[in-house]
């Protein structure tokens, strides 16, 4: 469904992606792990055209991702994104955040969007927060609203960019719980994360990225339990046993 072939991307003179080739099948959950600055987030941002890429090819169901083409709008409505810092619209209520895309981008009738918006907030456990503005919500609640906002677009896939990294530790579980439910429901997900337990339990596949290349990839349990590559082993040791 999502296909990257030989994707290169530089910021100025620094090449952050040095030939990424990977694919994500429909219904699959793929976790991308790796040290910070390795290019994980850049991959996600290239997939929905928040960043351009210099060489190679990214395709969503065969359609090429080009952030300067008119087709990018259609692609973005099919591939939603959840950000590390939530990026909810602070001047709109939780419900208004959720229905913004359906009403103003997909031109759905307001009544229909509202009904689905409320159902989605209920699905992430925030039915009673529909009329609250984001600054009055905890980080975990904000991120769940952001997930509902992504779902409201009825996307084919959702990209998660370190969705729990900005959260207090006790709030991480709620967000991961919602994501696990999504995975169980068959949503295609690409998740950049440092939550190894989540990757192990929920992901079908794990990609380990370092220095702009995919160092190792495979079924989640085998990459995380028996990493083959020295760099993967070193990274996992430092993440799992920081002391």
């Amino acid at each position: 469904m999502i296909e990257l072939s030989d994707v290169h991307k530089s910021f100025g003179k620094v090449e952050v992606l040095k030939g990424i080739t990977a694919s994500v099948e429909k219904g699959e959950v793929v976790c991308i792990i790796g040290p910070s600055g390795s290019g994980k987030s850049t991959i996600l941002r290239c997939i929905n055209g928040l960043e351009s890429y210099d060489r190679g090819d990214i395709r969503i169901d065969g359609a090429r991702v080009d952030r300067n083409a008119a087709s990018i709008v259609a692609i973005r409505t099919q591939v939603s994104m959840v950000f590390q810092r939530f990026n909810l619209f602070p001047h709109r209520t939780a419900l208004e955040n959720v229905i913004e895309g359906p009403i103003y981008v997909k031109k759905e009738p307001r009544a229909e969007a509202l009904e689905r918006g409320r159902a989605l907030l209920a699905r992430v456990g925030l039915a009673e927060k529909a009329d609250v503005h984001p600054p009055q919500l905890s980080g975990g609640q904000q991120q769940r609203v952001a997930i509902a906002r992504a779902l409201a677009m009825q996307p084919k896939a959702i990209l998660f960019d370190e969705p729990t990294s900005a959260l207090d530790p006790e709030l991480v579980g709620d967000v991961l719980g919602v994501m696990r439910k999504l995975a169980d429901d068959g949503m295609t997900m690409v998740v950049v994360t440092h939550e190894m337990a989540f990757a192990k339990d929920v992901a079908d596949r794990v990609l380990f990225i370092d220095g702009g290349v995919i160092v190792e990839q495979g079924p989640a349990k085998s990459v995380l339990n028996q990493p083959q590559h020295a760099r993967t082993q070193d990274f996992l040791r430092r993440v799992l046993h920081p002391l």
């Binding site: 929905n48 055209g49 928040l50 709008v73 259609a74 973005r76 409505t77 939603s80 994104m81 950000f83 810092r85 990026n87 909810l88 619209f89 913004e100 895309g101 103003y104 981008v105 997909k106 906002r149 677009m153």
Partner: peptide, 14 residues
């Protein structure tokens, strides 16, 4: 915040 613009773009806004 630039994140606001990215969030808007990510739901397909012009």
């Amino acid at each position: 915040d630039k994140g606001q613009i990215e969030a808007a773009q990510a739901i397909g806004m012009s």
